[in-house]
């Protein structure tokens, strides 16, 4: 049913309606996105749906160029935003649309919204970003995993032991200090996500909680797409396995 774009029809796109569902999971690094994508994929497959997962920077066309550009910091903001758009368009045409045509569910680990937020945080106008991605397909559902910056910070440190240069927006020279830059940058991104959540009708989910709780909420939004009733809420205290890591519980209650 996803046969509509945000405004611009691409040449060579199929004219018949696409029968698969497009489900997007958005959220900052550390919002629990990849965990949720994995849980959701496995649940949908158990339910009998074919799932193709996709994400950013996975196209064969320019991902090497993007990596190189990030290493050398060689491109300006507009150029970088466009390079990401090439990558996205390539995935849309060569992966997402064919999968939807074949009736699969496409599970997108981030979509145009992250790309738009990043571009705008680097000086692009909202209008330009919106027009640029006007060719994107309107998803059937956008789940936004919303977590507080302090939580994101704790999770990044717990996982990587440090803050990532790009996720801290160090290229923006907001501050020489990683910690401070991280907060300033996440604040900018979150301002854009706030706007887009309204503009594009995101389903916002409180991602300050443990993965099981988040997943239960996501399932409740996804199930109706298949005409199914929402599944029962799984027990948070799964037997034989500690549901929450110490660090996360601390973070969640911070």
């Amino acid at each position: 049913m996803t046969d509509r774009t945000y405004g611009t029809r691409l040449p060579g796109m199929p004219t018949e309606p696409l029968s698969g569902k497009l489900v997007v999971i958005e959220g900052a690094d550390g919002s629990g996105r990849s965990t949720e994508v994995a849980l959701l994929k496995s649940w949908l497959e158990v339910e009998g749906h074919a799932v193709v997962d996709t994400g950013l920077r996975r196209s064969d066309l320019v991902s090497a160029e993007i990596d190189r550009a990030k290493q050398g910091h060689t491109f300006g903001g507009t150029t970088m935003a466009l390079l990401y758009a090439v990558d996205f368009a390539d995935q849309l045409e060569n992966k997402i649309v064919p999968a939807l045509s074949a009736g699969s569910t496409v599970l997108a680990d981030r979509y145009i919204y992250t790309l738009m937020a990043r571009a705008i945080a680097r000086g692009a106008s909202r209008e330009w970003a919106r027009e640029l991605y006007g060719f994107a397909l309107r998803p059937d559902l956008v789940v936004f995993l919303d977590a507080r910056p302090e939580i994101l910070l704790h999770r990044a440190i717990a996982k990587y032991g440090s803050l990532d240069y790009w996720e801290s927006g160090m290229d923006l020279y907001l501050s020489k200090d990683f910690f401070e830059s991280f907060f300033l940058y996440q604040e900018r991104l979150s301002r854009e996500f706030e706007w887009m959540a309204r503009e594009y009708g995101f389903r916002r989910i409180d991602a300050n909680r443990v993965p099981e709780q988040v997943h239960a909420d996501v399932q409740r939004h996804v199930a109706p797409l298949y005409g199914a009733r929402a599944p029962p809420i799984p027990s948070v205290q799964a037997p034989g396995r500690p549901p929450v890591s110490r660090g996360r519980r601390k973070a969640a209650s911070a």
């Binding site: 691409l10 040449p11 060579g12 196209s59 064969d60 066309l61 320019v62 491109f75 300006g76 507009t78 150029t79 935003a81 466009l82 390079l83 758009a85 090439v86 368009a89 390539d90 045409e93 060569n94 060719f135």
Partner: peptide, 17 residues
């Protein structure tokens, strides 16, 4: 892999640079 759209965006990237 190239389509009219990626071809167009690729040139736009180049021009922006």
């Amino acid at each position: 892999l190239l389509t009219a759209t990626t071809f167009s965006l690729l040139h736009a990237t180049d021009f922006a640079d």
